[in-house]
Amino acid sequence: MDNIFAFRRNNRPARNHRLALGTSLSLLLLTVSAPAFAAGTVAGTDIQNIASATFDSPVGPVTIDSNTVVIKVDELLDVTVVTTDPGDVITNPGQTGNVQAFRITNTGNGDEAFSLVANTANGGDDFDPSLQQIIIDSNNNGVYDAGVDVVYVAGSNEPVVAPDQSKTIFVITSTPAGVANGNRANVSLLASAVTGTGTPGTSFAGQGQGGGDAVVGSTGADAQASSFLAVQSASVTLTKSATIADPFGGQRPVPGAIVTYRLVATVSGAGTLNNLAINDPIPAGSTYQAGSLTLQVAASPATTLTDAADADAGNFNGTRIAVSAGNVPAGETRTVTFRVVIQ
């Protein structure tokens, strides 16, 4: 207890100490409602303390008030950033417009603007996408609305976030053409309090909301989070085999023998391969056997395709067969068969 008085002897009163005869202030305090913020008392709030005493004196009961001590609550600068992507964001080689979502939350106690920096060149990953834009979710629906949500321009429209509130930010990138299936890229977003950042406890005199100081909180007033892009391109392999049935019950490639060609397209990787087309020229020295073209979708029974270029998926134009196998999910096969007769 003694150190309290020692302190007072050795130090000038702080500038926030205001001496006042707060007769009315003490009554006012009873009616002011409490600011209920989970992030704490809002910056700029005055904490006013006054004590009163009553006693009986020779002239009757007396009430006196102490001086009023006024302390302004300073602004705490704190922020957190998380990604709201549920997992890797799927991309393809050369794809533009990858959208990765982040949420920045003001965990301080004052309205604060945050500058944003996206880093697409983090180490420890497989490729570096190109940054296209940083987008502010200006209609606060958590979904990127192209042309509606506002493009972030550093130094111009830093989003201001109220205490305990969040803002969603989208980072839009493009994927280089040369990436391989399975490659991943770390895209991070850094949000920094515009007032200032630094080691916790660093203060910026007079720069807090409400006229007090701004003080860097435990987060350092900046935070970043990562979201990953993953290349999950589908690829196709085509395997061709032939079986021969000669007119003599054997398997020799002699004139008159019927060769059945079997083309198996296997889609691997992830995602879907769109508009798979399987074409094969009829080998020289052989003749296409009319009506022999079939398509088997995955494990379903094979269906026969007409030779005409019509509504079904295949045709024979005199020199080659062609089958449009459509969009094929990874892990499935499309099998085409046709027959030729060796001349």
């Binding site: 309290i4 302190f7 130090n11 009163p13 702080a14 500038r15 926030n16 100490h17 992030a39 704490g40 008392t41 904490i47 303390n49 004590a51 009163s52 005493a53 009553t54 006693f55 009986d56 004196s57 020779p58 009961p61 102490s66 302390i71 302004k72 609550v73 300073d74 602004e75 705490l76 106690n109 203060s203 007090g212 100081d213 003080v215 909180g217």
Partner: peptide, 30 residues
Amino acid sequence: EPKTVVPGDQLVFVVRYKNVGTATASNFVV
């Protein structure tokens, strides 16, 4: 001295009293 104060800070309030008169004060309540 409370130069900068942020949520979570611990405050110590000190109320000092002294009878500087010549008479005894009774029923003293703070």
